[in-house]
Design a protein around this nucleic acid. Structure first.
Length: 936
RNA sequence: GGGCGAUUGGCUCAGUUGGUUAGAGCGUUGCGUUCACAUCGCAAAGGUCGUAGGUUCGAGUCCUACAUCGCCCACCA
């Protein structure tokens, strides 16, 4: 059988991927004969390019899909992308800007046409890249969150929530990104410790009792000196003081008792504002005086509601100051800050600044500093949804791996806050809400800010029509003056439906899908509804960053709409970092491009390497050098397979393995490697089942490299033409390839295709998982083989210690009183001879005194290597003495343990037995070592 | 302010419910290319498992405190 000397990953990868796709091996169908196994990909952002996080994520999922496909399940892996509203809009806007076109010049319709164009052209980049990894997704079902079928699901859900009173619209403080000019949810505002300044500003007190001396008149402000005349306010955002409507102190704060009944003259704006008392204010912070700016701060907003203070908005959507800011109108927020401080200084109202580190929200898309802003937005009432989502995890219906994420999840769920879902951008699912202008004008509406965030005002329902399509006329007043809400929904409002929507929700089976319903942009295939078969999916594999964004919300949506959990297991893998522990990011320039790695090392190498260093839930520190693990392993496997393939005789391998258990022609080595293989197989499956992927990877690596290659192949060379070796070689290699296939799909396919085939199976990826044949696992065999290995290693060790030429064949004498040892050695002397370079192997039942010999002692076995003239007796004595001393230490410890009565009485029997055995073994070993030292 | 994780040979990390002699890869040292493989083989050196207590017959593993690093959450203006 022919096989190239060198393995060529690139060629192999292309060839087999095409083959798999053409044969539709990735495709899964509803198949009542089989059990379903399904995964949905965490949809990458459509603007994204493949990074190591994706590579890790996809590698893991592909392993599980291939593993379960081979285990005979109908394995479905649905791929796709999400439309990433803000990110995509930003990308397209930037692209247009280069042509000198602004979004608003185009208008909404035309801009969206541009976005779709962009999507058609670049949107599948990440999909193509995922294929390079060997991902066996069912590409025929590729989904996009803006597909019309998906959009239907989104409006359906919106309307259902609205009907259930779980969606409301209101005026609240939200996170506003001035650059993207849209609201963001709390999760999208990434809080970072930021160095800022705390500005201390004097606020003059206005006396209400008419006392002239305390009446702060603008002209007299300069002369304010007694502290009774002013309070000092500390703030990090002085520009917002233009919107102050009160100051607030803690009622328990003795320092400010005198403020009762007084008012403050707000500097610059020259407005009289109230002084309120509330325990929310921390007396220890700053001066203990809080300026209250309800339109620009969440806490202040709350106080505003409580004390009926009317918010005053002083900023525009782009964070420049508006007309309410008077002379500062038009200035940027930071420019205004500086100017304002200067003006305060001029008026002697400025006290000082202090450096101050505090958490500041940043837009998770463009990193701009977030401005809390009062505006009217749509919210989802989360508490009712979260209740059920918490319960299914608490009851163990959904399990997190590693466990500790359960707590993180529950903590968020139990303290959930309402979700702001409207976005002031154009790219996304338009909110299915229409406003009747007539109703809104006639009924009038008050701002909703009189109530808390969880309350909806009745006024908000007036003139609001929630509908999938635009109604012809207002159902209440009949007016046709109807407009759709201009906003779109948060991208996650579609992503949270991913597992159910990709499977056809709201339809459970194909038959439920109404005729004529199809997605004009996609193939008919996608209209299949297979919810009842594939849902709930088996596992969600994802990164910790999106537990709140996505995982928690999918659970809520699944339970609420599909009436069942979306997945049973959640595997949270670590974050990919560089070798100094920093998160990989473009801006840091520490990215390792997976495509480059694939190019250099191969896809299998990438997959194997990354997976073998992913301890469950631990972050992964990568450097390009780490990928050598996989590359070297692939190389080793290739070469081992070459050895086998070059020697295999096709007619000799077609033997049923089951009959081989009893085959008398099998040697110790044959039986041993079979035993080791089945033990490996069992461990491998167990590890994968408990999401210990690195354990599985390392187990098969150790088996193939250190058991199969290092020992079995070397031994097999002796009898390579004999039928028993032929069969064993073939069986073990063929089965190992199958076990390894989920991890390294390409190279295993390439080798497997070159093996003589027993059945007509077309590809390794659709073969069945090796049957666990426990009867081959044999501890006695393992022990006997271990004995041979130990002896061989001892001889090699002595060889190295005495610098004996490799080519020189040695005579050795092995002494042991044990019949088992003698039998094993006599039967298998050829292995020792071959692997240790031994000419004559003498086995003796009694210890022989051998002069001028190097000596090794293993348990109760003595190995003599007569080396007259080569070894230096004194040096050998020294070598042995050192060994003896180490042994002695061990023995003292072991015996000490046995002398401990508590140990003997309290420890489990088997542990004591083992300890005794160990001690006596040490004693024997020490004895013969000592005897040999004396003899020398 | 809460919560979580990490701390093991020069480096990067494994180590299941406590149980003999703590593993691996890379690196280091010595030896070795006759036909599977130098992306290799053989052999070796290197660790009082962050610190201090505690529980236990027995602790890298469990408990408490501390230290260092990292992450997440929270309305400190």
């Amino acid at each position: 059988m022919e096989i190239p000397t060198k393995y060529n990953p690139k060629e192999t990868e292309e060839k087999w991927y095409r083959f798999w796709e053409e044969n539709r091996f990735f495709h899964a169908e509803v198949n009542p004969q089989k059990k379903p196994y399904s995964i949905v990909i965490p949809p990458p952002n459509v603007t994204g390019i493949l990074h190591m996080g994706h590579a890790l994520n996809s590698a893991i999922q592909d392993i599980y899909i291939r593993f379960n496909r081979m285990r005979g399940k109908e394995a479905l892996w649905i791929p796709g992308t999400d439309h990433a509203g803000i990110a995509t809009q930003n990308v397209v806007e930037k692209m247009l800007m280069r042509k000198g076109i602004k979004r608003h010049d185009l208008g909404r319709e035309k801009f969206l046409v541009e976005v779709w164009k962009w999507k058609e052209e670049y949107g599948s980049t990440i999909i193509k890249q995922l294929k390079k990894l060997g991902s066996s997704c069912d590409w025929e079902r590729t989904r996009f969150t803006m597909d019309s079928v998906f959009s239907d699901a989104v409006s359906e859900v919106f309307i259902e929530l609205y009907k259930k009173n779980l969606i409301y619209r209101g005026n609240y403080i939200i996170n506003w990104c001035p650059r993207c000019q849209t609201a963001l949810s709390d999760e999208e505002a990434h809080h970072r410790q930021t160095e800022g300044m705390l500005y201390f500003i004097k606020y003059p007190i206005v006396s209400t009792c008419g006392d002239r001396s305390h009446h702060a008149h603008p002209q007299k402000l300069r002369d304010l000196s007694p502290p009774n005349d002013h309070v000092v306010v500390a703030t990090t955002r002085p520009e917002t003081m233009l919107g102050d409507v009160a100051i607030c102190v803690n009622p328990k704060d003795k320092r400010y008792k005198h403020l009762k009944g007084k008012k403050i003259l707000l500097p610059i704006a020259e407005r009289e504002i109230d002084i309120i008392f509330d325990s929310k204010v921390d007396p220890k912070f700053g001066t203990g005086v809080l300026k209250v700016t309800p339109a620009h701060d969440p806490l202040d907003f709350e106080l505003g509601l409580r004390y009926s203070l009317k918010p005053l908005n002083v900023m525009n959507e782009d964070a420049t100051m508006n007309e309410a800011a008077g002379e500062y109108e038009g200035m940027d927020r930071f420019e205004c800050r500086e100017t304002l401080i200067q003006d305060l200084k001029d008026r002697k109202l400025f006290v000082k600044t202090e450096p101050h580190i505090h958490g500041v929200g940043h837009c998770y898309r463009c990193n701009t500093m977030i401005e809390p802003r009062l505006s009217k937005q749509w919210f989802v009432r989360m508490k009712p949804l979260a209740k059920k989502a918490g319960d299914v995890v608490r009851k163990g219906k959904i399990k997190f791996y590693p466990k500790r994420w359960t707590k993180v999840y529950l903590n968020w769920i139990d303290n959930i806050r309402d979700w702001c879902i409207s976005r002031q951008i154009w790219w996304g699912h338009r909110i299915p809400v229409y406003y009747c202008k007539e109703c809104q004008v006639t009924k009038g509406r008050k701002p909703a800010c009189r109530t808390g965030r969880d309350e909806r005002t009745r006024d908000d329902k007036k003139g609001v029509i929630v509908s999938k399509t635009k109604p012809e006329k207002c159902p209440e007043c009949g007016s046709t003056d109807i407009e759709q809400d201009p906003d779109v929904l948060d991208t996650w409002f579609s992503s949270w439906l991913w597992p159910m929507a990709t499977l056809g929700w709201p339809f459970k089976t194909k038959d439920e899908v109404p005729k004529g319903r199809r997605d004009e942009r996609t193939r008919d295939e996608k209209d299949k509804a297979e919810l009842s078969y594939f849902y709930p999916t088996n596992v969600l594999v994802t990164a910790q960053e999106i537990i709140f964004f996505w995982v928690a919300r999918m659970i809520m949506a699944g339970l609420e709409f599909a009436k069942d959990i979306p997945f049973k297991d959640v595997y949270i893998h670590g974050t990919v970092r560089d070798d100094t522990g920093k998160k990989m990011s473009k801006s840091l320039g520490n990215i390792i491009d997976p495509l480059k790695i694939i190019n250099e090392f191969g896809s299998d190498a990438l997959r194997f390497s990354i997976v073998s260093i992913t301890a469950q839930g631990q972050d992964i520190f990568l450097s390009p050098q780490k990928f050598e693990i996989g590359r070297n392993f692939a190389n080793k496997l290739w070469n081992a397979s070459r050895l086998v393939l070059l020697n295999l005789k096709e007619d000799l391998v077609k033997k049923d393995l089951c009959q081989m258990t009893q085959d008398p022609s099998l040697t110790l080595a044959d039986r041993w490697i079979l035993s080791r293989f089945y033990s490996c197989l069992s461990d491998f499956s167990k590890s994968l089942d408990s999401y210990k992927i690195n354990d599985a990877a390392n187990r098969i690596y150790d088996f193939l490299w250190h058991e199969f290659c290092d020992w079995y192949l070397e031994m097999a060379k002796l009898t390579i033409d004999e039928p028993h070796t032929q069969v064993t070689l073939y069986k073990v290699l063929e089965k190992s390839l199958r076990v390894l296939h989920p991890l390294m799909p390409f190279i295993t396919e390439e080798i497997w295709q070159r093996l003589p085939r027993e059945h007509g199976t077309k590809s390794i990826m659709i073969t069945s998982w090796p049957h666990a044949q426990k009867e081959f696992i044999n501890e006695t065999i393992d022990r006997e083989m271990q004995l041979l290995i130990n002896i061989i290693q001892s001889v090699r060790n002595m060889r190295a210690a005495w610098r004996i030429d490799h080519k020189m064949k040695l005579d050795i004498i092995v002494c042991s009183g044990s019949k088992r040892v003698a039998d094993t050695l006599n039967k298998n002397s050829s292995y020792v001879q071959k692997l240790a370079g031994v000419k004559k192997l003498e086995v003796s039942k009694i210890s022989k005194k051998c002069a001028h010999s190097a000596v090794s002692v293993i348990e109760d076995i003595e190995i003599f290597l007569p080396l007259e003239g080569i070894i230096d007796i004194e040096k050998e004595k020294k070598r042995l003495t050192e060994k003896r001393d180490k042994l002695k230490e061990c023995l003292v410890r072991a015996q000490g343990k046995l002398k401990n009565k508590s140990f003997v009485s309290k420890a489990p029997k088997n542990v004591v037995e083992k300890a005794k055995e160990y001690a006596s073994l040490l004693q024997k070993e020490l004895g013969s070592l000592q005897r040999n030292i004396d003899l020398l």
